[in-house]
Nucleic acid binder design. Structure first.
Lengths: 344, 344
DNA sequence: CTGAAAGCGCTTACAG
DNA sequence: CTGAAAGCGCTTACAG
């Protein structure tokens, strides 16, 4: 009535009243080790024994303590996944693919959020590593050298994703954000655009896309239509405001390359509101190929990213690592694809 | 070169070469218990000792093994969170709010995905419970009785969310989906609509919203405009197709109540494509108030859900439970709000 | 302010 | 096919 401390300890039960493996063994007339085997390698236990054990598990409502299991076996059964943000849906497909493959293989997902400040990320990754995950994946490339060193030292199989690098901490699965930005900008140029602006967010991947944009302009002897327009939040509203800002800064711009589809959709909606003809007066291009891109009128020209496959493939590679298989390609480029629709 | 087994075990190191608390203690000239204290209750250790210990931690790259910590202390430092799906962004805000509050309090998030079949969910929750989370939250109400009993037995502080029930397993934080459906349907009726159709998805929350819709119609002496239109996936495309199906089934319908904003947005886009005047010819209402709802033309009339607050509040309540505080309200209704815009 | 002893609940070799 | 012993790396009382 007045708290757990007044409960008499139950006979043959662990703290909190939860049965332990010993309790199951006693109920089944065998020992802990055989119970452990019956649960993990059923074939190695006589059918009758197994039967009695499973009955006892059922009767007692036994749930193995995975912390104890992890400590003893040195396999945690956990895969950690670090994402920049959950609120934004950009990475949802990747998380989904990762979770699907990892879950099917019996792993649980430890989710880490936030990779903005170097210190916060270092702390987060340290804490996650403390859980001894059997593998760790992160959206994006880890930038901070100290953190990279820490992760290398732990020797936890690790996948960086959503971009490429020649020297991953362990593995990297993604595509070249720089090349994607480059390809889309070239597409705009090929379509006759000469005054192309950049609208982007404030993260590493957007920065790489911007580099591709700048390179493509330079190769074509063109100049940016305006100073970069950078938004803090990735929302439709931010895309709208960015578009308005662009028209202020460079009324003569004939194309806007947006570093992601959310911003592009916002820009597109603002154009419609202002009665600005897309693509005749202004071409708008995005990156990501979210579902909404194809549903709008005009439909959004964008870059398709294998978001789900990035997650699934990273998980598969990590499973192979865990299984001790040799991985010959540590850098996996899943590519991207220009999807030409109506807006550019 | 050919695998970890060829590595000679290092002196004074645990398996895998990772330093243990003993190694830190040795390097700092003290004992494990003092190291543990220095890391967890710094005040209780002499400043000089603490200094030496922190230096040793730094030098060795020591990361506490949280499985061992969890086993010894019976506090895992984990909060488990179960969501129906990650790929869909509907719950992203809730996950974000939960993760924010839990993370700030030093907890890690164990993410479970999928609550569709009763057996799969039972297995998932059992597995999660095995990790001895200090608390567990789930989006939605757990339906399966056996699973409810299991969770009660574990005595893990638990929050069901995104709906209400008089008898939560432990706590429930949400709003009445039935009432939300009822309120929006009444709004449509008040606006003069008489032939109102329902478009929904195939989950418990949508079912509750549909009940509210049906009740409101009955109270007004009205009949559904058409048989329910139920989609399997929550996508804009599904919303589009549902709208077309509705016009086939009931060309005379004057309103469509969509169980969520994604379907409503899809329906709205399809109306525009078909040149169907909204709201004059057909009113369209959603539920959720996603950002896109306010950005479209006509802007979507919908129900605002405190999605972020549900997650944050559930986490706060669970933290209070963990701290042993008494919770007087086990059922927390965070309400909802009709947002009247242009579409209905 | 610091430490010796015991134990958390499992699994890993090893033996039979 | 089954079991006795040891140990995974921490923390919890308890003592001084």
């Amino acid at each position: 009535m007045s708290g757990p401390s007044t409960d008499a300890p139950r006979r043959g039960r662990g703290v909190g009243g939860r049965p332990r493996i010993e309790d199951v063994a006693a109920a089944a007339g065998t020992t802990a080790i055989t119970v452990s085997r019956a649960l993990r390698q059923p074939d190695k236990v006589a059918p009758e024994t197994r039967q009695r054990i499973l009955a006892a598990v059922e009767a007692l409502g036994y749930i193995p303590n995975l912390s104890a299991s992890a400590l003893a076996s040195r396999r945690s059964g956990i895969m950690a996944l670090v994402v920049p943000t959950i609120a934004n849906s950009v990475f949802a497909e990747t998380v989904d693919g990762f979770s699907e493959v990892a879950g099917r293989a019996g792993f649980q997902i430890l989710l880490g959020q936030g990779t903005y400040s170097a210190e916060a990320e270092h702390r987060l990754l340290t804490a996650l590593a403390g859980r001894q995950p059997d593998a760790l994946a992160r959206i994006g490339i880890v930038r901070h050298d100290e953190t990279r060193a820490l992760l290398r030292r732990t020797r936890i199989p690790m996948a960086e994703t959503w971009d490429l690098t020649d020297e991953p901490i362990d593995l990297v699965v993604g595509f070249s954000n720089r090349d994607a930005g480059h390809a889309m900008t070239r597409h705009l140029i090929r379509r006759g655009r000469r005054s192309i602006a950049y609208i982007g967010s404030d993260d590493d991947r957007a920065a790489a896309r911007r580099r591709g944009y700048a390179d493509a302009l330079e190769e074509a002897g063109l100049h940016p239509a305006a100073p970069d327009i950078r938004v803090r939040e990735i929302t439709y509203g931010a895309g709208r405001r960015a578009l308005r800002a662009l028209l202020q800064l460079a009324p003569e711009a004939d194309a806007a390359f947006c570093a992601n589809d959310v911003l592009a959709v916002g820009a597109l909606l603002e154009c419609r509101k202002m009665g600005l003809a897309v693509p005749d007066r202004l071409a708008v291009a995005g990156l990501g190929d979210f579902e909404i891109a194809q549903e709008l009128t005009p439909a959004l020209t964008t870059v398709r990213i294998p978001s789900h496959r990035i997650g699934a493939h990273a998980a598969e590679l990590l499973l192979a690592r865990i299984a001790g298989e040799t991985i010959d390609r540590r850098v996996v480029d899943l590519g991207f694809e220009i999807v030409e629709r109506e807006s550019a």
